[in-house]
Amino acid sequence: MSFEITVNGEPRTVEDTATLADLVSALGQPPQALATAVNGEFVPRGAREGVQLRAGDAVFTFQPITGG
Rank of each mutant, 00 (worst) to 15 (best):
F3Y: 12
A58E: 12
T61L: 05
G68Q: 01
S25M: 08
G28D: 11
E10P: 07
L20R: 02
T13K: 13
P11D: 12
L20Q: 02
P44V: 00
T66L: 00
G9V: 01
E4D: 15
T6P: 02
P44H: 03
L27F: 10
T36I: 06
I5F: 08
A55L: 11
T6I: 01
A26R: 09
T66Q: 04
T36D: 02
G67W: 01
G67I: 09
V51H: 05
T6F: 00
A33D: 04
R48V: 06
V51F: 08
I65G: 06
V7F: 02
E49I: 10
T13A: 14
P11Y: 08
T6A: 00
E4A: 15
Q32P: 07
R54I: 10
E10W: 11
N8T: 07
E41P: 10
I5G: 06
D22Q: 11
P44D: 02
T61C: 05
M1E: 15
T36W: 01
G40E: 13
E41I: 15
E49T: 10
S2H: 09
A35G: 08
E41K: 15
M1A: 15
G50P: 07
A35P: 00
F62L: 07
P30C: 06
T17H: 15
V38R: 09
L34I: 03
E49S: 06
F42S: 00
S25E: 10
A55K: 14
F42T: 00
R45Q: 12
S2R: 08
P64S: 00
T61I: 08
R48F: 03
A18P: 13
L34N: 00
R54L: 14
D16H: 15
A35C: 04
G50H: 12
V38K: 07
S25D: 11
F62H: 05
T61P: 02
M1I: 13
V59F: 02
I65H: 07
T17W: 14
G56V: 11
L23A: 12
G46Y: 02
R12K: 14
V43I: 07
V59T: 03
E49A: 12
G46V: 04
F42N: 00
P31K: 10
T17P: 09
D57R: 08
N8K: 07
Q63H: 06
T19F: 08
T66H: 03
G40S: 10
D22G: 06
A33C: 02
P44L: 02
F42A: 01
Q63C: 07
T36H: 05
L23C: 13
